[in-house]
Design a protein around this nucleic acid. Sequence first.
DNA 1: GAGACTGTTGGATGATTGTCAAACGGTACG
DNA 2: CGTACCGTTTGACAATCATCCAACAGTCTC
Lengths: 109, 109
Amino acid sequence: MSEAENEWLPQPDVEDIELVKVLQALADPVRLSLLKVYATGERFSCAPDALGIAHLHKSTVSHHMKIMREAGLTSTRAVGRNRYVQLRRDDLDARFPGLLDSLLKSLPD
Amino acid sequence: MSEAENEWLPQPDVEDIELVKVLQALADPVRLSLLKVYATGERFSCAPDALGIAHLHKSTVSHHMKIMREAGLTSTRAVGRNRYVQLRRDDLDARFPGLLDSLLKSLPD
DNA sequence: GAGACTGTTGGATGATTGTCAAACGGTACG
DNA sequence: CGTACCGTTTGACAATCATCCAACAGTCTC
């Protein structure tokens, strides 16, 4: 059975996103590289290989995902046994105008 | 004697400023509040009271200053027994266009 | 139902961090 | 010179963090 149940994992409301939390979430090389991956607009599952962090254990990836989601950077939809993660671009633009764009422009290639 | 010897403390060159380091430097409530203080454009000595962090020990303040300076956020001039700190606004704008402005706009009042 | 698959949770560990306190080094000024 | 002043350095400590491993929970597919 189990029609894909399309459930969203808990995340902060737009107005509750805090700048410090966002900066803390991005103050790590791994998560900063994930920001760039997600900036393509695609939704990714959490497979370390597809995310360019094949060297990391899957539980470590899960940990990073949680931090980014709880900071308000990403939103995650659970479909079957996969988690599809994407950037909360509109929410971030509404809360911190211009911040995301300048961050992405500042990222090393 | 001792005509004020106007010496600059070591800081990274513009092109050596790293985004991760900048984000790490700002991923702390105290230092984020300092960013706002320095955004006024004034130069400040390191007196905790004038910086709005009167509750912190002077050695802690010195520690925060060092982190911000080594990240490339601030520059420090030593004059006599004082240190005058200011934001490297032009350098940051050149290295990460728009980032500083959007950060300052995103800061809670 | 038995495996295989995707991701989470809990514990363990080593590294980093924010803070304070005490000692120190220059500097200014009686 | 002696004392007060401003900031740095060092050490200590508790807290947080990034990482791995093992075990677990759902989910999909034979």
